Simulated assay, not measured.
Amino acid sequence: MKKTINIQKNLKIFGIPLFIIALMIAIAKSPIFVNNPSELSLAITFDLLLTVPIVYFLLIRKTKIAKTTVVPFIIIGLITCTLILPSENQYYLNLFKTWILPIVELSVLTFVIYNIRLAIKKYKQNQTASFDFFTTLKNTCYEILPKSAVIPVVTEIAVFYFGFIHWKKRELKKNEFTYHKNSGTVTLLIAIIFIIAIETVTLHILLAKWNATVAWVLTFLSIYSGIQIFGFIKSMFKRPISIENNKLFLRYGIMNESTIDIATISSVEISSKDIELNKVTRKLSFLGELESHNVIIKLKEENILVGLYGIKHKYKNLALYVDNKNEFKLQLSNATQQLQNN
Score class of each variant (00 low, 15 high):
residue 219 T to W: 06
residue 53 P to Y: 01
residue 232 F to E: 02
residue 148 S to T: 07
residue 284 L to Y: 08
residue 320 L to E: 04
residue 230 F to L: 11
residue 170 R to K: 15
residue 6 N to F: 11
residue 36 N to R: 08
residue 106 L to H: 04
residue 137 L to R: 02
residue 307 G to N: 09
residue 153 V to S: 02
residue 284 L to R: 04
residue 342 N to W: 00
residue 50 L to W: 15
residue 103 I to D: 03
residue 125 Q to K: 13
residue 152 P to F: 07
residue 83 L to G: 00
residue 307 G to Q: 05
residue 15 G to I: 09
residue 244 E to H: 02
residue 103 I to H: 03
residue 284 L to Q: 05
residue 112 V to D: 03
residue 48 L to N: 07
residue 84 I to H: 12
residue 22 A to G: 12
residue 210 W to G: 01
residue 70 V to M: 12
residue 320 L to N: 07
residue 99 W to P: 03
residue 251 R to I: 02
residue 28 A to W: 03
residue 70 V to W: 03
residue 209 K to W: 01
residue 155 T to C: 00
residue 255 M to H: 02
residue 29 K to E: 15
residue 273 K to N: 15
residue 24 M to S: 02
residue 321 Y to G: 05
residue 33 F to P: 14
residue 265 I to R: 01
residue 118 L to D: 05
residue 234 K to A: 06
residue 141 C to K: 02
residue 290 L to V: 01
residue 279 K to L: 14
residue 218 L to N: 10
residue 247 K to G: 03
residue 213 T to L: 10
residue 107 S to C: 06
residue 163 G to C: 06
residue 333 S to K: 00
residue 120 I to R: 09
residue 299 L to R: 05
residue 313 H to P: 04
residue 198 I to E: 13
residue 75 I to V: 12
residue 136 T to Y: 03
residue 252 Y to V: 01
residue 119 A to Q: 07
residue 5 I to N: 11
residue 308 L to Y: 14
residue 57 F to T: 15
residue 97 K to S: 09
residue 261 D to Q: 07
residue 305 L to V: 00
residue 194 F to K: 07
residue 137 L to M: 09
residue 214 V to Y: 11
residue 100 I to P: 04
residue 227 I to Y: 09
residue 333 S to L: 00
residue 169 K to Q: 10
residue 154 V to A: 15
residue 223 I to Y: 15
residue 247 K to W: 00
residue 263 A to Q: 10
residue 26 A to V: 04
residue 109 L to W: 05
residue 182 N to R: 04
residue 136 T to H: 03
residue 227 I to V: 11
residue 321 Y to C: 02
residue 235 S to D: 07
residue 188 L to P: 01
residue 337 Q to A: 10
residue 78 L to R: 03
residue 75 I to L: 09
residue 46 F to A: 15
residue 304 I to A: 08
residue 308 L to E: 10
residue 270 I to E: 13
residue 251 R to N: 14
residue 85 L to C: 03
residue 140 T to C: 01
residue 222 S to K: 05
residue 55 V to C: 10
residue 332 L to A: 08
residue 253 G to H: 05
residue 267 S to K: 13
residue 13 I to T: 11
residue 334 N to W: 00
residue 322 V to A: 07
residue 168 K to A: 13
residue 213 T to I: 14
residue 332 L to Q: 11
residue 266 S to R: 06
residue 311 I to S: 11
residue 283 K to C: 11
residue 146 P to S: 08
residue 108 V to R: 02
residue 205 I to R: 13
residue 270 I to M: 14
residue 192 I to S: 11
residue 302 E to A: 03
residue 25 I to C: 12
residue 26 A to Q: 06
residue 179 Y to Q: 03
residue 68 T to M: 15
residue 81 C to R: 00
residue 21 I to W: 04
residue 283 K to R: 11
residue 212 A to F: 13
residue 330 L to E: 11
residue 216 W to M: 12
residue 257 E to G: 02
residue 151 I to Q: 13
residue 88 E to A: 08
residue 220 F to C: 06
residue 277 L to V: 14
